[in-house]
């Protein structure tokens, strides 16, 4: 079985995001960029499935500008067999990303696509679901445990009420939640080996996918600063203050 893994590059989770002064986006210059944490988890899960003998090949997919290669090399160093780089100058929206994946699915015929439940840049939480719909295959989102046997995936999902276990016929789309696994460190000798692993480059324009931008971003702004708290002397004063604000 072949597994396709989404591997997006985002501003590192631990970086404090700063909005550009002109409100056209967030500052990315000189800022640490890393793999979307959920995609790291997706790749880790795919590698574990390959190590268990469930899969033979793990392919990481990135959609982005020319300099995405270094990022994809990290995925290869972590253990993916090869990478596909869909070269797109601008960021793509979830539906476009799903359509790109569909094209790659048609070409690669994977038994499983593992994506992050969301990317931490726009937190859309849509691509996996849209891909499953376009592909007309089952989806198992927010996975915290995955077992593959007999052409079926048994997936534990993190849902509002707790955990839910579902079965999905393969091929299927799985999206990962935080507790699914702890991604491995990249071994330095593997970075050297990864240099000789193949990266297929596909121009976005050649895929025949229309980049519909259904969503328009008007501007970016930092969240309003929380106003300072007020100290009250005692319970009576607290009650009075709450009443004054119409909260009691």
């Amino acid at each position: 079985m072949k597994i396709l893994v989404g591997y997006k590059r985002v501003v590192d989770y631990n970086v404090r995001i700063q909005v550009k002064p002109d409100g056209t986006g967030v500052v990315t210059d000189g800022v640490k960029l890393s793999a979307n944490p959920f995609d790291d988890i997706a790749l880790e899960e795919a590698l574990r499935l390959r190590e268990k003998g469930v899969a033979e090949e793990v392919v990481v997919v990135g959609i982005g500008p020319a300099d995405l290669t270094a990022h994809l090399r990290n995925g290869l160093a972590m253990g993916a067999n090869r990478a596909i780089h869909v070269v797109a100058a601008d960021a793509v929206q979830p539906l476009t990303a799903a359509r790109v994946f569909l094209k790659l699915v048609e070409k690669e015929q994977p038994g499983l696509v593992i994506l992050g439940k969301q990317a931490i840049d726009d937190d859309a939480n849509q691509t996996g679901q849209m891909l499953a719909a376009l592909w007309d295959r089952p989806q198992a989102t927010f996975a915290s445990k995955v077992d593959i046997a007999g052409g079926k995936a048994t997936v534990t999902r993190e849902v509002d009420a707790g955990l839910e276990v579902i079965e999905a016929e393969l091929p299927a789309v799985i999206t990962t939640d935080l507790r699914l696994n702890e991604p491995r460190f990249i071994k330095l000798p593997d970075i050297m080996k990864a240099k000789s692993k193949p990266i297929d480059t596909i121009e976005f324009g050649s895929l025949g996918v229309e980049a519909h931008d259904h969503l328009k971003t008007t501007h970016y702004a930092a969240p309003a600063k929380r106003s300072k708290g007020v100290m009250v002397k005692d319970a009576a004063e607290l009650v009075a203050a709450l009443k004054q604000k119409g909260l009691l």
């Binding site: 590192d12 631990n14 890393s34 790291d40 990290n74 460190f185 990249i186 330095l188 000798p189």
Partner: peptide, 19 residues
């Protein structure tokens, strides 16, 4: 590595791994 001064190594890919 070539000189035998290190036997293995890993590199952090994110701030979380660095931590």
């Amino acid at each position: 590595l070539e000189r035998g001064w290190v036997s293995d190594g890993v590199i952090a890919q994110s701030e979380a791994q660095a931590a």
